[in-house]
Structure formats: C-alpha cells, structure tokens
Design a protein around this nucleic acid. Structure first.
Length: 604
RNA sequence: GGGGCUGUAGCUCAGUAGGAUAGAGCAACGGUUUCCUAAACCGUAGGUCGUGGGUUCGACUCCCUCCAGUCCCGCCA
C-alpha cells in the first residue's frame, strides 16, 4: 500500500497548499508537510490519520476542530482523495481519521496476488549511470585459524537478511566477507608450522580446523613465553610481507584449511558470500598513507602516523588519533578499512563502484567505524550521493545474562550450537509424532528438524532489535508459541493443508468475483497490504526485526481468521475469495522467511 | 575522565515519524476441538515507561540533570 500512501500524501499536500496560499507562514508549513499523514495508531481509527490540525490550531490560534472541519471540506473536494477514501472523520481534539474504500483495498489485494514479490515495488533509485544502485554488505568476517563462534552468528545472519532485502528491491548487491586473513599473528602460526612439520609443509593438508584452533593457542603461548620463537615469528612476518614463496605457501595453506570450515558453516546456514579478505587491500595501503599525507591530514606522533579526530578525545583529554601507520612502519586494521572503503567506492575497474556500504559488526566497533568514516569524509573518499552505514549489534548472552559460554567456560562453537538446535528440534518432533501416533519416514524427520532447528536460531536472532544484547535460549526459540520460527512455520503448514484439501482447480479460481464481508477477512487484508511498507522501512533503517514483528502479527491475524472463519465449507465465491487470501498470506510468509534466510515447510 | 549503547508488566522483549485508553510472548488462572495440523484460538490478571526537570495543545518517543548496567577510548581486529 506504499503507493497509495504516497498518492494520498501528495493529494493532502496539494489541498493543504491550496488552502494556505493566502497565508504566509511558509517555514512552519514546510515542517507540517513532512508529517502530513501517518498510519493510524489503532486499527479502529481507520487506515491513516492526519494530525496537522492540532499544529495549525496553534499557528492560527483557532479551535483545532474548527480547522479540521474546514480542512476536511476542502479535502473532500479533491477528486483523488474522494476516489481513494471512504470517509474522513474528525475525532478527538481534531484528528482526521482516514479510511480507504473497500474496492481500493480489493484492487490492491488482487494486484498483490498476481505479483511475485507480494506487492513489494522495485526501487526506482538509480545511480548516476542510470543503473540500479549498488549496495555492498560487509558481514560475517571470521578470522583465519580461529573457529567461528556465536559472535559471528549475528553478523552473518543479519548481514545475509539485509542483503536479501536489498536484492528483492532490485538493487545490485555485493556481499563481502572481509576475512581476517592478514596480520602479525601469521608470523607465529607459520613459525610453529615450520617447527612441527619441518620445511616441506606437505603434511599440513591433514590438519583439521579444530586442530588449527588448538594450534593457534599453542603458537600464541609459545609467542608469549619464548623469546627466540618471538624473534623468528617477527622475521616470518617480514618474509610474508615480502612475499617469500615458502611463507606465502604456508599462509595459503592456513587460509585454505580455515576456508573449508567456514564454507561448511555457510553451507549449513545457506549463506552466499564472496570472500575478499583483508589481504586483498594490501597493495593499496601505501597509497592511503600517501593520499592522506598529500591532503595534509597525516600527523606524526610518537613515531606513528596518525589522523587526529574531531570530537573524540582520549583519557588525558587530548584529541584521539586514528593510527594509519605504526612506528615500525606496519599497517593496522584502520588502514585496511580505509583502503577497503576507498576501493569499494572507486570506479571500476579499480574499485567496486558502490553507492552504499553497510558494515555489519558488533557494537564494540562503533567508535572504530565512526573514526574511519570521519577520516574517509575528510579525505573526500565518500562520493556525492553515496553513504556508509555501520549496522551495530549487541552481544549474544546466556540465560544468566553473561556472555554465552559452555559449562566449562569455553567459547561455544557455531557448528556445535547449530547441531544442538537441530537435535532438540528433532527430539520435540519425535515426541509429537509419537503423541499424535503419526508415522513419518526418516527423511521427513531429518529435514523437518533441520529446517526448524536452523530456522529457530536465525529467527531468534533476527527478531530481536539488533542494538540490544539478547539472551540465547533454545527453549524459547524452539517454542511452538510466541514470536518464533516454529510458530510461523506452523502457520505456513496450515495454509499448505488448506491448499491440499481444496478441490477447485486453479483455472476455475477467478480473481474477478472475489468479495469479502467478514471482519476478520478485512483485518487480514489490511495486514497483508502493509507488507511493502515494512520492507521499505527496513531498507532505510536496516532493522530486520521489523519484518519479524510484522510476520508474527500477520500470523496471529491469519490464525484468528483460520480459527473463526470457515474456508473450505462455504459457497463457491466465498470459498475462492478466502482461498485467495490464504494464498497471498502463504506467499507473503514464504517470501519473508526467505528474506530472513529461513527455509519453508509444507508439513511439519 | 571522555564517548557509545541500554534501562518499558514477575521474566524475555516490541513500540517508524511526538498523538487518542501503553503492546506482545512466556509464566499464572479460566474457557474453546462432529470442521482445513489444538504446535491453534478466546478470556482474566499484571505498568509511577530508571529518576528529576524542560520543550509542546500533546512525550515511552525530542533536550538537559542524575542513578544503574554494559562496551569502547594510541600502535590487536
């Protein structure tokens, strides 16, 4: 209904301007225009509401209801408005409640039933070249030689969902995995590798990542305790940076080992992402320093080359620096992030030609990104009409409110967490099958519990407002009640059930004769028509939990309808009308679950 | 010391853009099954929206004070 909302806003704007042409207070009216009509705060008020009469009352020093009377009279003269609206009702101190005509809603519903995107319009935003805008979503980003853990879960799931929403809207989306594949830690890893496997490095193919994680720990311990090891590790870093063959080979082997494990996780989560690690930007690091220096932003302080930041100070009250080059000449993550940002905005073939870059990382990096963005701004690396967003998110906590850990106090591995969820989903399923005396084959049980288990983990994460920390609880996320994946999946299963039992052929289900009379039908229709606006709001604010909230409400509305309204045992026209509502609900739900990265089920 | 974020029902959380009586789920209590999967639905109860000010016709929402929790603050990412 986004299009109708826009049309209506425009018509209201016209009418307002017409009625105000004799008056002068233009600046105040500009403010009013921004917020002419809103969604009704409650269903009983209608579809939209207009609150400006209360504001106008102050400006004109007249009774708001009087103003509303005059304004409504004018509005009714506007043909577009009378075409769309049933009535304009003045309520309370001077609100105007707006109700759309039934036939307008039915036309919308019909058009959404035919639309493969369930009514979501393609974005009409274009870049300068006339192509759709290009959005880079930077997410997941695990580190080589370290196991992926729950910390990577949120980034991966939220990033994937945001990317999918932009794709649905017709943008060109580049999903980038900014893997930690470079840095001083490789010095110690390679040195350890050489110590253990001699210099031929053939046997490393046999190492598994779990060993590699252990391997990392051992290397770190040696690095911290053995001076001689430390010395060789530092030498190894230099060798690696100079591109010495053996060192590069060892580095690649380490990366490959890790990649295998990452890919396995992405396969299970069904995540598509392009790997482009930090090392990709190595060739551009020097030019970052040069460019900043050329633009007179670079200041040497205590041997390090820094850009000092506005509005940020350190403990001593001095301006905070962003270190671009360390005193030993090495670069750090800030430099890499700047190089990446610059490259991504650069024109092809020397860059990605992006219009918007979205970074999905934990909230702890908020300061870091604020600093990086500020420097990029100062250096003029963010082109006109382009933007960067940091999408921060809170911690995953255990039920105790502390950081999620195993009983032994270890970080929980992502693969174990997923397996656990699937296992619990399977136990629940088997219990239920037993209880209902149902017989299902192994394939059904495996697939259903997999979809529920993985879906539950994803949904639990996405349904939270990402800013806040959230408590990870298998019991809650797998619960069949409440705002959970199983509840949504069950609603879809109900719809599939109706579809199976329906004996009218698709060809005989004519859209033209649909009509509605039941209150719950209209509630469902209005809920269905809000879908596109939810998607558009997420595109702006990058809050996927809004989609989850919407879906939960949609399912609640549908389940009430399902419970109280007969669908299959009614006369033919009513039956077709109701089946069509089921169809659109199913399509919206399935499409949305896909946007959240969750698979659907026909039966469960 | 500076900065970010958070504080809403017993618990876990929603609450675009300031709008009319503050919204769910869980937990508690009660009800609904000749019917499309009851994994559902309906009802009852539960709130000084951390505190105190301010702006406004109107504040959970915007501004300031304070309190509590948490994260970040120079060569790790």
């Amino acid at each position: 209904m986004h299009v109708i909302f826009k049309k209506l806003t425009k018509s209201f704007e016209e009418t307002l301007l017409e009625s105000l042409i004799k008056h002068e207070k233009k600046e105040e009216f500009e403010k009013i225009r921004k917020n002419l009509i809103n969604h009704a705060s409650k269903e009983e008020f209608g579809d939209y509401q207009c609150n400006i009469c209360l504001v106008l009352s102050k400006i004109y020093k007249r009774n708001p209801r009087e103003i509303a009377n005059t304004f409504v009279k004018k509005l009714k003269e506007n043909k577009n408005i009378s075409y769309l609206c049933e009535n304009l009702e003045i309520a309370g101190p001077g609100f105007i409640n707006i109700k759309l005509k039934n036939n307008i809603l039915i036309e919308e519903i019909k058009s959404n039933i035919k639309c493969p995107r369930a009514g979501v319009p393609l974005s009409n935003e274009k870049s300068k070249s006339g192509f759709p805008k290009k959005i880079i979503v930077d997410f997941s980003s695990p580190n080589i030689a370290k196991e992926m853990h729950v910390g990577h879960l949120r980034s991966t799931i939220i990033g994937d969902s945001i990317a999918k929403i932009f794709e649905l809207r017709g943008y060109i989306v580049l999903r980038l995995n900014h893997i930690g594949d470079w840095g001083t830690q490789f010095g110690m890893l390679i040195t350890q590798l050489k110590d253990l496997y001699s210099n031929d490095l053939k046997e490393i193919d046999k190492i598994k990542i779990s060993d590699l994680v252990e391997f990392y720990k051992v290397s770190k311990k040696r690095f911290d305790n053995e001076i001689e090891f430390q010395y060789r590790s530092r030498e190894e870093v230099v060798k690696l940076q100079n591109g010495e063959k053996k060192s590069i080979k060892a580095w690649k082997l380490l990366c490959n080992q890790s990649r295998k494990e990452f890919d396995e996780i992405y396969r299970r989560l069904n995540i598509k992402i392009k790997e482009r690690g930090e090392s990709f930007y190595n060739p551009f690091l020097k030019s970052i320093v040069n460019d900043l220096n050329y633009k007179k932003l670079l200041i040497e302080d205590q041997g390090a080359k820094c850009v000092f930041l506005d509005g940020m100070i350190n403990k001593e009250g001095n301006p905070l620096p962003l270190i671009i080059q360390k005193k030993d000449g090495g670069f750090n993550y800030a430099t890499t992030d700047l190089a990446a940002l610059k490259y991504r905005f650069n024109k092809e073939p020397y860059g990605d030609n992006a219009n918007r870059i979205i970074y999905v990382t934990d909230h702890g990096q908020a300061n870091h990104f604020a600093a990086v963005f500020q420097v990029a701004q100062k250096a003029n690396w963010i082109p006109e009409n382009c933007e960067v967003n940091h999408v921060p998110f809170g911690l995953v906590q255990g039920i105790d409110g502390k950081k999620l850990k195993t009983r032994e106090g270890e970080t929980i591995k992502l693969k174990d967490l997923l397996s656990e969820s699937v296992k619990k989903a399977k136990e629940d399923l088997i219990k239920r099958l037993d209880h209902e005396s149902r017989n299902e084959n192994d394939e059904f049980i495996l697939n259903t519990s997999r979809v529920i288990g993985i879906g539950a983990v994803k949904y639990a994460d996405l349904s939270q407002n990402r800013i806040t920390n959230y408590q990870f609880s298998f019991e809650k996320m797998l619960s069949l009640n409440g705002n959970t994946a199983p509840y949504l999946l069950y609603t879809l299963v109900r719809i599939s059930g109706i579809k199976r039992k329906n004996n009218i052929k698709e060809d005989n289900m004519n859209l033209e004769s649909i009509s509605f009379s039941h209150d719950l039908e209209w509630k469902l229709i209005r809920k269905l028509l809000k879908f596109d606006e939810v998607i558009i709001s997420i595109e702006k604010d990058l809050m996927p939990n809004r989609l989850c909230n919407y879906l939960f409400e949609l399912c609640q509305t549908f389940n009430r309808f399902y419970d109280q309204v007969s669908i299959l045992k009614v006369e033919i026209d009513t039956k077709i009308s109701r089946l069509k509502l089921c169809e659109l609900t199913g399509k919206t739900l399935k499409l949305s679950l896909d946007l959240l990265g969750i698979e659907s089920l026909e039966r469960m």
